[in-house]
Design a protein around this nucleic acid. Structure first.
Length: 151
DNA sequence: TAGGCCATCTGGTCCT
DNA sequence: AGGACCAGATGGCCTA
């Protein structure tokens, strides 16, 4: 994607460019700015690597389009909540009993899965619906996943 | 073409 | 002092 890459090589605005180069102090300031820019790029790249890892772990619901960062976080939150619920119910039904899993597979509903973390879920309704427009039609994927967990 | 998403730059703040 | 982290601003790419 990125196109601001022309800047990478690197132009520094502010004191250095405004007042011209020459004085050691100005040069030092410019140098530190460039170093800070590079560090920030590396930091953000690290963050993006982490997001990519998370995307690979979180259900994609058959989406060919890559989840945005915000969607990835929301999905991770939902996914953790759903897995947590399965584990909780597993304890309830007893670990040697496999019916607990069937209960989930048969009665699992999108509204059980989707969790926004909002104190007031209404606030995020529009976005929830947007997300669910594809999560609902691919709900069976989660059930398949659940069946693997239980096998 | 507008809107969403993203990478990058930048200055501020906090911490070591 | 210098690094890490953060949020705002900016501008490019992509899609509906």
């Amino acid at each position: 994607m990125k196109t601001c890459k022309s800047n990478i090589t690197d132009s520094v605005s502010g004191p250095a460019s405004s007042f011209g180069l020459g004085s050691p102090k100005v040069e030092n300031t410019a140098k530190r700015r460039l170093a800070a820019n590079a560090r920030e790029r590396r930091r953000m790249q690290g963050l993006n690597v982490a997001f990519d890892r998370l995307r690979r772990v979180v259900p994609q619901w058959g989406q060919d389009k890559k989840l945005s960062k915000y969607e990835t976080l929301q999905m991770a939150l939902s996914y953790i909540g759903a897995l947590n619920r399965i584990l909780t119910d597993a304890e309830k039904y007893g670990s040697s009993h496999t019916d607990w899993l069937n209960v989930h597979v048969e009665h699992f509903q999108p509204e059980d899965f989707y969790y926004t973390g909002q104190e007031n879920p209404q606030e995020d309704d529009d976005y929830n619906q947007a997300i669910f427009s594809y999560t609902q039609e691919n709900l069976h994927m989660f059930n398949e996943l659940a069946s693997h967990v239980g096998s």
